[in-house]
Design a protein around this nucleic acid. Structure first.
Lengths: 322, 322
DNA sequence: TGGTTGAGTGAGCATATGCCCGCCAGATGG
DNA sequence: CCATCTGGCGGGCATATGCTCACTCAACCA
């Protein structure tokens, strides 16, 4: 009764791997120390540790409320081929689901702003974006250019309340290019005239080359901000919904497949679409139950390649089949 | 409403640490990759990972039946200041509690045998040791010396069945020094004569310099092997128990505090005590419910500095207070 | 207001890690 | 019985890691 046959050699190899893995991950020993402890060469110790990992003997888990968020980020990133996803922890039941989103989004934005090389940063509009910009710290970013994708003149002639570019430029001290035209331009002639203005062409060209674009994602229900705030009419809303619109990004509506709807309203929008530059980042910032449907569509259609959202929203997005 | 005050800076630092730790341990990214991902310097990434660890955000657990054994080993090692502890997985309820002990002990023994530098290896006796030796593979260890600590002549004049040294020497091809004298020598004159034999002096000197000693640990109940196998008489057993004996190592009895009992039987033992050389390893091999009391005493008295035992026994040893 | 302090930062370096390569032993097949 | 093969082993090297040391910047106190 000497050496056992192969059937338990496997077992004893796994035992040794477990032992090595334990010493490495739990005991925090170096592989040299493990080698000494087990009386084997360092290479063998390294192979055992690696085996312990690859055989799944070692389980690592993160004890932190954002652990779930990180998992959601990874899942969303993978499912939709996104470049960047950030999921803000849920604020808890009952609270505003967008609470906590802005600081996280601001962190993302700040990272771009901290780049020393000049960037062209395009901005949409909306509550989420506005809140994000308000979370930015004062800084000096004269190397970048901020470009608005959307007209800053509301239907009533005032500057739009949700025009974020001025505020942002103010906080981060960057050259900025608002789009001096109405959000919606009913007369096609006038619209063409606006677009032919030289300064608008400059803005359009810049926006087209944006390295990164931050946009909100709106929904198209009766309480759609774009409608409630008077940017589009009741008729427009019904028309777009009839055409299949489930959401909008800088007033461009898209259907459940994430395809922009070219008919109707699209012809009267005073602004540009996000994502002109193919290799630029287009980051959507949105959270809340209302945003699940439009976000799902936008992701499906590849309208975004980056996303900042909330835990519950991320979960809902991942619950859909496919 | 710009930068938040310190109260959530702490939180966001922990969040970042959690994120970094997650990327490192779950995502298996290098710190450089994490630095790029988070847009910080590598040093910062390393600090975040380290913070995640030190704040206990990362929990590692080993998914393997020996995980518990490893934890028990660490606990025993620490509690009793032992140099080496191995705990064999429990064979399951109902099975022989010593099952599985021998292969583990043999692994330990083999490690010493594989040493290229010459070692003096002292051996006790007993079932556990015998079983251990039988698990050794054939090998050639001419550099080492095997020394017996205990007489190899049973009271009936035969060579003891549990004399392990011959078998071991046979398997590992090492020079060996049995102790050619009875296990118990009733006549003091004869005992002195035996000890004055030159070859016995050689053995005694070797044993005294043993680099490592392997011994079984016996209990002192009515079913004590030392008694059942006829090495000591009923009277001896009662005498030693009356003197407080709770266990024996190579026929030297000790009390609950792990102090050797010098009266009575001790004067008639034909053999040596384990642990002559202060810096040598003295490794006890024993498992089973009967062994808990003697092992606890031996550990308390520092009679052993190494231990190979079973999962259940280790657990029982750790259950005692103090 | 101006010094002081202390936490956080990046550079640099010694060490640990992971991986590739040539080697050897034991298994396999002629 | 010998040639071949395969799989594990240690040597060595490029890379990653962790740590120390000045340094900065900003808050705090006098």
């Amino acid at each position: 009764m000497n050496r056992k046959p192969a059937f338990d050699a496997e077992d004893s190899a796994t035992d040794a791997a477990a032992r090595a893995g334990w010493l490495y991950y739990v005991g925090r020993l170096t592989q040299d120390q493990i080698a000494a402890e087990l009386g084997v060469s360092r290479q063998r110790a390294q192979r055992l540790v690696s085996k312990a990992m690859s055989e799944g003997l070692i389980h690592v888990r993160l004890e932190h409320r954002i652990a779930r968020c990180l998992a959601l980020e990874a899942a969303l990133k993978q499912r939709h081929g996104l470049r960047m996803v950030r999921v803000a922890p849920s604020p808890g039941p009952g609270a505003d689901p967008t609470h906590g989103l802005a600081p996280v989004a601001a962190e993302v934005m700040e990272r771009f702003l901290r780049q020393p090389d000049p960037l062209i940063i395009a901005l949409g509009t909306g509550r989420a974006l506005r809140a994000t910009v308000e979370e930015l710290p004062k800084m000096t970013c004269e190397q970048h250019k901020l470009v608005s994708l959307v007209g800053n003149i509301a239907p009533d002639g005032t500057a739009s309340n949700y025009d974020v570019i001025m505020r942002m430029a103010d906080t981060v001290r960057a050259p900025h290019y608002p789009m001096p035209l109405p959000v919606i331009i009913d007369d096609e002639e006038i619209r063409r005239m606006f677009y032919s203005l030289p300064q608008l062409k400059i803005v359009a060209r810049l926006a087209d080359q944006a390295d990164v674009t931050f946009v909100g994602v709106g929904h198209m229900s009766e309480s759609a901000p774009i409608y409630v705030d008077g940017f589009i009419s009741d008729r427009d809303l019904r028309e777009q919904r009839a055409l299949g619109a489930v959401g909008e990004i800088v007033t461009s509506c898209f259907d459940a497949e994430g395809r922009y709807i070219e008919e109707g309203l699209a012809r009267r929008v005073g602004g540009l679409r996000a994502g002109g530059k193919p290799c630029g980042e287009v980051i959507g910032i949105a959270a809340g139950p209302d945003k699940v449907v439009p976000l799902r569509a936008a992701l499906k259609g590849g309208l975004l390649n980056g996303l900042v959202t909330g835990e519950d929203t991320a979960e809902a997005l991942l619950e859909s089949p496919e």
